[in-house]
């Protein structure tokens, strides 16, 4: 059970949070213009990375805020945490 540094509340048990999958998959602004393939790409297709993943979490049992996490999915070590709308760390 890892610990997550909520950018609003501080370090808490992972069980207080809920994962929201890959980050930075932006909902298309004009869905109707997309082909079925392009829509499926947004809806279902995921990188599902083994290694450094940019992902979304929400502090369900806390401030209920969504934010982003950079986590190595091969060992669950969290490298960075940043708020929604902030630029992802480059390193």
């Amino acid at each position: 059970m890892f610990l997550i540094e909520c950018p609003y509340c501080g370090e808490r048990e992972q069980s207080e949070f809920k994962a929201g999958g890959e980050a930075h998959i932006i909902r298309p602004k004009q869905p109707t213009e997309l082909s079925d393939d392009q829509w499926a790409e947004y809806l279902f297709m995921r990188k599902n990375i083994k290694g450094m993943q940019f992902e979304r979490w929400v502090h369900t049992h806390g401030c209920r805020k969504w934010f982003n996490v950079v986590r190595d999915t091969s060992n669950d070590i969290i490298k960075a945490v940043y708020k929604m709308g902030e630029k992802p760390p480059t390193k």
Binding site: Q14, A19, N48, I49, E55, W57, T73, S74, N75
Partner: peptide
Amino acid sequence: YVSYSQKGS
């Protein structure tokens, strides 16, 4: 959450 660590909580 996605994980390849073969460990759950």
